[in-house]
Amino acid sequence: MLRSLSMTTAAILLGTAALAEPLVRFDVAEDHTRFVFQSAPVDDEGMPTHGNPFVTQGYVYPADTLAPGIDGVNEDGSPAFPELVLGTWTCDGFLVGAAMKAETGVFLVSRQTVVLNEGDILISHGPEIIDENVVQLRAISGATGSFVDHDGDIGQVFLGWGPYMGLRAAFDMEGHGEDS
Rank of each mutant, 00 (worst) to 15 (best):
F54L: 03
F54H: 01
V55Y: 02
Q57L: 03
G58N: 03
A63D: 04
T65W: 01
T65P: 03
A67I: 02
A67L: 05
A67G: 05
I70A: 01
D71G: 06
G72Q: 00
G72M: 00
G72F: 00
G72E: 00
V73A: 12
E75Y: 14
D76C: 15
P79I: 14
P79W: 07
A80N: 04
A80I: 01
L84W: 10
L84T: 13
L84G: 08
L84H: 08
V85A: 11
V85Q: 11
V85W: 09
L86F: 14
L86H: 07
G87V: 11
G87D: 11
W89E: 01
D92K: 08
D92I: 04
F94A: 09
V96S: 10
V96C: 13
V96E: 07
A98Q: 15
A98C: 14
A99W: 10
K101R: 11
A102M: 12
A102F: 13
T104D: 13
T104I: 15
V106N: 11
V106D: 12
F107M: 13
L108Y: 12
L108R: 15
L108V: 05
L108Q: 11
V109K: 06
V109S: 09
S110L: 12
S110Q: 14
R111Y: 15
R111K: 12
Q112H: 09
V115I: 03
L116C: 07
N117H: 12
G119C: 13
D120K: 06
D120A: 03
D120M: 05
D120Y: 02
I121Q: 09
L122S: 00
I123E: 12
S124C: 02
S124L: 03
H125W: 05
P127N: 02
E128H: 04
D131N: 11
N133W: 06
N133C: 07
N133K: 06
V135Y: 02
Q136Y: 08
Q136M: 10
Q136E: 02
L137M: 01
R138K: 09
A139K: 10
I140M: 13
S141F: 00
T144N: 15
F147N: 05
F147M: 04
D149M: 03
G152D: 06
D153K: 10
I154C: 03
L159A: 09
L159F: 05
